[in-house]
Design a protein around this nucleic acid. Structure first.
Lengths: 147, 147
DNA sequence: AATAATTGGTATACTTATAAACAGTTCAGA
DNA sequence: TCTGAACTGTTTATAAGTATACCAATTATT
């Protein structure tokens, strides 16, 4: 039973490790919440974005979600196959598609969204209003630094 | 130019969105820092863990990194092929391997680690000591809630 | 008008991740 | 002893994700 060597990490590295592990756990938790609806986190993100900005094209959607258009292409393929999203042609520009939720896409999103919100609420319920505020401020500050 | 519909999110959901975007940017940034060394973030994580806990088996390593053993299997395959890690047999238990860095694995890690630390330092340099402390506390609190 | 540069979507190859099934090994207990 | 449960690593199928190269369509430049 030799003790593991404990490195002393610098505060920034320690924060980064914590953040990575927390993120991993949050994602795992949310996958569970979405599973009953047959959605992955990435698919939900697409539905969510298209619910608020219908008609986006694939490149713009990729920019919103911070992923590549190649990734979006496959995601939309699967969502279209599942009948949740449709590609509509643009009469002005034949390179592009406008993405829209189908009726069942809207319905599924409206069921899944509250379930996910509730799961997220539970994840953060240990924080009081002040702490939540502080966290938001710090995250925003870091976010700004990397843009 | 129709304005995008702005949903009003609850604080917990807003925090979660911020956190997801921040994580995405941090990862992207770190991939860039590791690229000169021919390492991905996942591969670096393996090297880092094996540097502090040599002799781990694949299941234990998977537990440490919060991933599955199936994932580790492929990761180690590639790292072994690159000559950075080796699998050593256990004379007592023929099911298991002990994982060790090779000499070049150690060397590469010792080059890449400071570069990554520096990148992480830059990511957090906008926070002063107090803020860093607060962030750590909040992350730890959330982390605990999900364990 | 002709050509060049940019843009949008797709295809391919690779890495990472999960879950589930599988094969061999170890070990506890009847 | 032998049988069954548990464990270790591998494989497979599926889903994301990147980077790169490509084609077709649009826009800018000369």
């Amino acid at each position: 039973m030799k003790p593991a060597i404990q490195r002393r990490y610098r505060p920034s590295v320690l924060s980064r490790l914590h953040l990575a592990r927390l993120h991993s756990r949050l994602v795992h938790d949310e996958q569970n919440a979405l599973q009953p609806y047959g959605l992955t986190a990435a698919q939900f993100d697409v539905l969510s974005r298209l619910a608020t900005e219908p008609g986006l094209n694939q490149q713009m959607l990729a920019d919103r979600l911070l992923v590549t258009k190649g990734n979006i292409c496959g995601l939309i393929d699967r969502l279209e196959l599942a009948g949740l999203v449709e590609r509509r042609n643009d009469p002005q520009d034949r390179r592009t598609y406008h993405l829209h939720l189908t009726l069942s896409g809207v319905k599924l999103f409206e069921q899944a969204a509250p379930a996910l919100e509730e799961a997220i609420g539970r994840q953060f319920e240990l924080l009081n209003d002040d702490e939540m505020d502080t966290l938001l401020t710090l995250l925003a500050k870091l976010d700004r630094a990397l843009r």
